[in-house]
Simulated assay, not measured.
Amino acid sequence: MKAFDIYRYDPEAERNPRIDTFEIDLDDCGPMVLDALIWIKNKVDPALTFRRSCREGVCGSCAMNMDGTNWLACTRFISDMSPSATIFPLANLPIIKDLVPDTTHLFAQYEMIEPWLHAETPVPEKERLQSPEERSQLDGSYECILCFCCTSGCPSHWWNGDRFLGPAALLQAYRWLADSRDEAKEERLDTLEDPFRLYRCHTILNCTRTCPKGLNPGKAIAEIKKMVIERDS
């Protein structure tokens, strides 16, 4: 058996948030934390609410805080959880219910960086080509699945989330700045060059420590700052 302390909150109910403890039968459950949550929902408490989809660490839906660390429930082994295992929703976000945070604001910030190709040259007959070297510049940024583990764990975003774009959006911004096919580098840098949108990052690097894909948003933000300095010098 394994015990989990799980955060519960329903904004529509007239009661404060609480912690519920559930005992999991490990012989009747899969190996991942997401398996345990599904087991609880199916066999103990159908009202337990959480997001999930791919179960393969690809969609980012099941991002939550487990034993104090943001990660994906579908890639965290139950055996890696502490004896007093705790599961909370991602921090610093409004709660829709239980383990489901409201990410509307984060996706609005993502939309602000215009995450699509800007190109004025005529569309080629087949495709816009890149050399292997040019393509390699996207490694470490295109893999982001927008789980927002990094942004939720960023103290700078806790303090200035209304204006600081946060590591997830800025990593995606760097992905397009580094793309040799994109032709709007100047406009993108103009949008980012702001005391809060970009420069509120204080290089705490919680974002890098908590990325379940092993990416380095802190480095990407530093590269954007470097691009701005080189452009303006």
Rank of each mutant, 00 (worst) to 15 (best):
A3G: 10
E12S: 13
A13C: 14
A13E: 15
N16D: 15
N16G: 12
F22S: 09
G30V: 03
M32Q: 13
I38K: 04
I40N: 00
K41V: 13
V44L: 14
A47T: 15
L48M: 02
T49Y: 07
T49F: 02
R52Y: 13
C54V: 04
G57C: 08
C62V: 08
M66P: 02
M66E: 06
G68K: 01
W71L: 12
R76V: 13
D80V: 12
M81N: 10
P83H: 02
A85M: 05
T86W: 01
P89D: 00
P89M: 05
L90H: 01
D98S: 11
D98C: 07
L99D: 03
V100C: 11
P101N: 09
T103K: 09
H105W: 13
H105M: 14
Y110D: 04
T121F: 05
V123C: 15
K126S: 15
R128G: 08
S136V: 11
Q137P: 05
D139C: 13
S141D: 10
F148T: 03
S152K: 03
G153E: 02
N160V: 11
N160G: 07
G161N: 05
D162N: 00
D162W: 07
R163M: 15
G166Y: 01
P167K: 02
A169D: 00
R175P: 06
S180E: 02
E183P: 01
K185T: 14
L189G: 06
D190Q: 03
L192P: 02
D194E: 03
T203N: 10
L205T: 01
T208P: 01
C211R: 01
L215W: 01
N216S: 14
K219E: 15
I221L: 02
I224K: 03
K225V: 05
M227A: 07
D232W: 04
S233D: 11
